[in-house]
Amino acid sequence: MMTIFRYTLRRFQGQILGWGIALALFGVLIVSMYDMIAAEQEQLQELLEVYPPEISAFMGDIGTFATPEGFISLEFFSFMPLILGIFAVLTGSGLLVSDEENGRLDLIMAHPVSRAALFLGRLLAFVAATVAILAVCWLGLVVPMNWSSMDIGWGRMWLPLLSLLAELLVFGTLSLLLSMFLPSRRMAATTGGMLLVASFFITGLAKLNENLEPIAKLSPLNYYQAQEAFQGLNGAWLAGLLGSAVVFAALAWWRFQRRDIRVGGEGGWRLPAL
């Protein structure tokens, strides 16, 4: 399993550096802008208050925009599940199936590696890669605080990132599960991406329309804490998200244990001819 883990993590190196550095640089930019924004906070507050509620519903509590926590949440954390969700969906959907589709899994599985070890090794590599991206991202947020008046604290900055990690694991494992049932990686990634975007909009729109609240309760992003995380993580929500990820991963593992390893189009779905 460790060979699988190390090999998979090595393949993720480029993504860890690419996503991590890009988001860290974005974090540096946001933190560096805080002092300038804070100086103009009265005018900005007035501007934000005239924003239509449809927009502010997706941005969190804009009344706290001038506070360090409110600012970093609005500018960074509020849409990060959508951005990094793309990584989670693409990685989760391709974790096993991309190698299967290009024929590499056949030879790997012909070695004395159990399906459980392969599955677990790759899943752990995905978790490690996600944590690594968030760690680089965290560095981009906390290091510039040394020359900024933003005083959130290095440890507290991890709180929304932990909530974000749980979200990414949910969408990553959900996409992995989809890839085990759907006939292609592309279809799994598309479906996972659609669920991610739908979750983002339903969660935002439920703040405007009470009728959507029952549906929003099924949305993983309903339990994402950006600014609220700085006041303390909701343990039940975090456990619920991590529990969902474990259930999705367990179902995917169950399916992977039982299905054929494909090398061609066998087992694929065909749309009826028009």
Binding site: N102, G103, R104, D106, L107, A110, H111, P112, V113
Partner: peptide, 12 residues
């Protein structure tokens, strides 16, 4: 698999 060596027809 531990006691087998395998060469697939479509090597990737």
């Amino acid at each position: 698999r531990a006691r087998t060596g395998y060469l697939p027809g479509e090597l990737a």
